[in-house]
Amino acid sequence: MIASKKKFKLGSIEPIVFRTVNTIIMLIVIVVMLYPFWNTVAVSLNNPQDTLKGGITLFPRIFSTYNYETVFKNRLLLIASVNSVLRTGISTILGVIVAAMIAYVLSRPEFLWRKFATRYFLVTMYVSAGLIPNYFLIRDLGMINDFSVYILPGLVSVFNVIVVRSYIKSLPSSLFEAAFIDGVGHFRCFLLIAMPCSKPVLATVALWCAVGAWNSWFDTFIYCSSDENLTTLQYEMMKMLAAAMSSSSRSGDAIYQAGQAASNMVTPVSIRAAITVVAAVPILVVYPFLQKYFVKGVMIGSVKE
């Protein structure tokens, strides 16, 4: 904002100054934001015993793929990945459609229940029954050890609905009016106008849904932990982490585990790094396909038509 005062003095150099400063800021952002992930990769590629000594920053000290071998040795990894991909895919597609559909209805000013319905949905964001009542519900619906528990309970995300609604509301109302005059019904209007015009925000919501579904493990832990066929990638990762932790601290009992302690090779720090990388990679691979929608923007063309 200081620079705007200098505008008259600097004249045409201003854009160059701005661009340079901005680029420098962005380079700093790159360094600062890349470091933690970079460090995690370095730790994941370092010898686990050596990692215990600390001090790994940018590069592995003693290179080792042991951590990844441990992760990939897991016999449930394949089925867990399939489940994770499935639940992520289904939750994302349904989640986006549902959010958009509700958002569209709530954005229609003429909708009779608009106020009531908005409040009705909004309240659910701020009230939560807690673990045990939710468990009872899921059990009574027969969804314990059932794949549907990965999809249904989180299907309606009110946060996403509100975000999409505010986006749809910001679209020029002439878009819809024209359609209604042409006799287009609400459903087609939703499918053919609201959805395509909201691509950037739908891409964002899709990303939120996908990352949320991909990263969740608590539902597996509570609802599906006794059925191996329903395990998910994150849950398997948590299991590996737990196993690594247990071997580094046998706590509690009055055990007389005298003699040599098993010099386990796996350590929590290293396993945590490896599973973080393994779990993040699929998202990073898919990301560019969504990114193009909100980094570039697709909206403008359709508005002008």
């Binding site: 934001m33 890349l34 933690p36 992930f37 990263n215």
Partner: peptide, 9 residues
Amino acid sequence: TISYLPHFL
């Protein structure tokens, strides 16, 4: 892309 990486840690 880099800026959101820490979110996954």
